[in-house]
């Protein structure tokens, strides 16, 4: 951190791994994830349950213990604004959480404290980082207004159960952005909402991102949401990144069979280019106590080659693809699809 280098990444993750020791063997939730995030960039991370997409951000925030994950083994390196986070003590991480890195969780009913008013819960994010009580209360009202809640004066005194799902999620967002963080991590923030409310929340987030100039990691299982908000998309499976690149490249020049499966299972316009009818990905996610030795997706992949079952494919630049378009695959999806179409 010697000079203000604008090209230096905001977040740099190297070989991040998270294992949970259990009586039935270690659960290998995250297995060597590496990526970088520029300031102001929005990254969409997509994957199904158990892909490691949520666990890896909880790990870098030091929040795993809260979910009964005490004793999780985290290794690798996470540098945020040039500072290493892995192995940092709790006070140092706490100073960062909420202030430099904001978090918005899914299911705002259970993620908000039922016995505190919404105003108190927003203000707490500010008082925890040194703002005085009166100033925090005032700022909480501004934040409520900013996230589009009408009559903030009155609503601040209400409890979470007095809000609708969409409004509660707006409150969660207000908490996440309270200290104007450089990075906002949104963990499935629209999953619990119905489609129209989801669209409103997406609009709000796009708007806030512009106003506050923050980078965002948007975790979801929904490719459609990613298309609507992210610049870069990263597909995770079995605790690994299978494909990553600019949204356009990944959607239109798909190189990983799992990504293709996700796109084909997407209803609506974004998925239409990839299929004639809605399909689902066959098979089950892998048992992460005994992950397959090779490509984690190989057992469910009809394009898998013998090598896929033996050796983990490295994440590498697609030779003839867009810059920054990376894929982990031993097979050539484009060639395989072309051969299928010819047959």
């Amino acid at each position: 951190m010697t000079t203000k280098d604008t090209t230096a990444p905001l977040l740099e993750i190297r070989d991040l791994a998270v294992h949970f020791p259990t009586p039935g063997g270690a659960v290998r939730a995250v297995n060597g994830v590496s990526y970088t995030l520029r300031a102001g960039e929005t990254l969409g991370i997509v994957g199904e349950s158990g892909s490691g997409k949520s666990v890896h951000v909880l790990a870098l925030l030091g929040l795993l213990a809260a979910r009964g994950g005490a004793g999780a083994i985290v290794s690798g390196s996470v540098r945020f604004e040039g500072q290493e986070l892995i192995g940092r003590d709790e006070p140092a991480l706490r100073a960062l959480r909420g202030r430099r890195i904001g978090v918005v969780f899914q299911d705002p009913m259970s993620s908000l404290n039922p016995v505190l008013t919404v105003g108190e819960q927003i203000a707490e994010a500010l008082t925890s980082h040194g703002l005085g009580r009166a100033a925090a209360t005032r700022r909480a009202l501004e934040l409520l207004e900013l996230v589009g809640i009408r009559e903030p004066q009155r609503r601040a005194r209400d409890y979470p159960h007095q809000f609708s799902g969409g409004m509660r999620q707006r409150v969660m967002i207000a908490i996440g952005i309270a200290c104007e963080p450089k990075l906002l991590i949104a963990d499935e923030p629209t999953t619990a909402l119905d489609v129209t409310v989801q669209a409103q929340v997406l609009d709000l987030m796009r708007d806030l991102r512009k106003k506050l100039g923050m980078a965002m990691i948007w975790i979801t299982h929904d490719m459609g949401v990613v298309a609507g908000i992210a610049e870069t998309v990263q597909v995770m499976y079995g605790g690994r990144i299978l494909e990553r690149g600019p949204v356009r490249a990944v959607f239109h020049d798909t190189r990983n069979a799992y990504t293709l499966g996700l796109l084909q299972s997407l209803p609506g316009a974004a998925g239409a280019a990839h299929r004639s009818r809605l399909t689902s990905i066959p098979g089950q996610p892998p048992d992460m106590t005994r992950p397959p030795p090779g490509d984690p997706f190989a057992p469910r992949n009809r394009f898998a080659t013998p090598r896929c079952f033996e050796e983990v494919p490295p994440l590498a630049q697609v030779p003839d693809g867009a810059p920054g378009h990376l894929v982990a695959a031993w097979y050539d999806l484009r060639a395989a699809l072309a051969a299928e179409a010819a047959a």
Binding site: L61, R94, R97, V103, F105, S110, N113, H129
Partner: peptide
């Protein structure tokens, strides 16, 4: 302790 709102509080940087 296992509730989501406790995780939210910790994510806000609230003192233990």
């Amino acid at each position: 302790l296992g509730q989501d709102y406790v995780r939210t509080a910790r994510a806000k940087g609230v003192a233990p």
